[in-house]
């Protein structure tokens, strides 16, 4: 779907901001570009919709070299969400969401129907919000409008530049959950830039960890955590390693190592596809059981921690 081939970008200060990056993002995949400030992740993102032109290399979207497509046409087919949402302060919420459909020349009824649909899905009731100006909205609401605006013309590709970065931690978690559960996204190819490790692990199908303009490792979150390619990758996650590992690991992944103990008297059942972290969180309230492979087992803290150790030794 999206392919970067030996892409470099220099801003003319003798040092490449992005150095020989090649990666492929499959249809419907959420690819997270992760790294610290100045690692080149945003530069990489902005080259995909030609806000920046690569100094070397080629970028293909749907198999077409993006240089062969007029920039404005390319961009109308790619949703774009920014950290500081970039809503138009002189447009209402409705007008903001209509921007790209207007540019594409949709008829009025179709635009209106589409706006209503998106506002409903993003928990922005049209009666309350359609005629409001962005300044009257909370940060979380503004970010949802920004997302709706990017999704309005139903583009197959979505670029997101630190979309939750400007929100407070509580709002960020809520908006992120809503984002994850949004059916609109399940069919889209998403490239998401973030420096938030937890966000990357939670949202990414795959993570591309970058440093100093180069890819350090590209893979599923569990790959980066359990099979780091180099010291940079290993140390990058150290601060939150336990939490991240438990979040990544599913109960089913450690099923074999869980002991066959007696089931507790009173219990709650948890799905075996849930993460170990969520299981631990639920354990703090009451005893748990899970079933997998026609077996039912009790889930305990000891069991989970033993499972993690065994998993890492393999």
């Amino acid at each position: 779907m999206i392919q970067l081939s030996h892409v470099s970008k220099s801003f003319g200060n003798g040092k490449n901001a992005v150095e020989d990056i090649s990666l492929e993002i499959a249809d419907g995949e959420i690819m997270v570009l992760l790294g610290t400030s100045g690692c080149g992740k945003t530069t990489t993102l902005r080259m995909i919709n030609r806000l920046l032109e690569p100094s070397a290399g080629d970028i293909f979207v749907n198999g077409k070299n993006i240089n062969a497509i007029p920039a404005t046409d390319l961009r109308k087919g790619i949703g774009y969400v920014l950290q500081f949402h970039g809503l138009f302060p002189h447009y209402t919420v409705m007008e903001n969401i209509s921007t790209v459909p207007e540019l594409l020349g949709w008829n009025k009824d179709k635009i209106k129907a589409r706006c209503m649909e998106l506002m409903e899905k993003l928990k922005l009731p049209p009666d309350t919000f359609a005629a409001e100006y962005p300044a009257a909205l909370s940060g979380g609401q503004q970010q949802r409008v920004g997302l709706a605006r990017a999704l309005a013309a139903d583009p197959p590709v979505l670029l997101m530049d630190e979309p939750f970065g400007a929100l407070d931690p509580l709002t960020r978690t809520t908006v992120r959950k809503e984002f994850k559960s949004l059916d609109e996204l399940h069919t889209k190819t998403v490239v998401l830039v973030t420096h938030d490790i937890e966000e990357a692990v939670e949202l990414g199908d795959r993570i591309c960890l970058m440093n100093e303009g180069r890819i350090q490792q590209l893979g599923a979150p569990a790959d980066l955590l359990f099979q780091p390619a180099n010291d940079f990758v290993r140390h990058f996650f150290d601060g939150q390693r336990l939490h991240l590992e438990l979040s990544t690991l599913k109960i089913k992944d450690i099923w074999a190592t869980l002991p066959d103990t007696r089931l507790p008297q009173a219990y709650q059942e948890i799905a075996a596809t849930e993460s170990c972290w969520n299981a631990l969180a639920a354990l703090s309230k009451q005893a748990l059981i899970a079933s997998w492979d026609n077996e039912v087992k009790a889930i305990t803290g000891d069991g989970i921690m033993n499972g993690l150790h065994t998993f890492k030794k393999q």
Partner: peptide
């Protein structure tokens, strides 16, 4: 605000549309 002009450009506005609409 540069975030606003960047958003407008990123959504596919031409220079002229950017000028008149934003």
């Amino acid at each position: 605000d540069s975030a606003i002009t960047e958003a407008a450009t990123g959504m596919g506005m031409s220079t002229r549309q950017l000028l008149y609409k934003v």
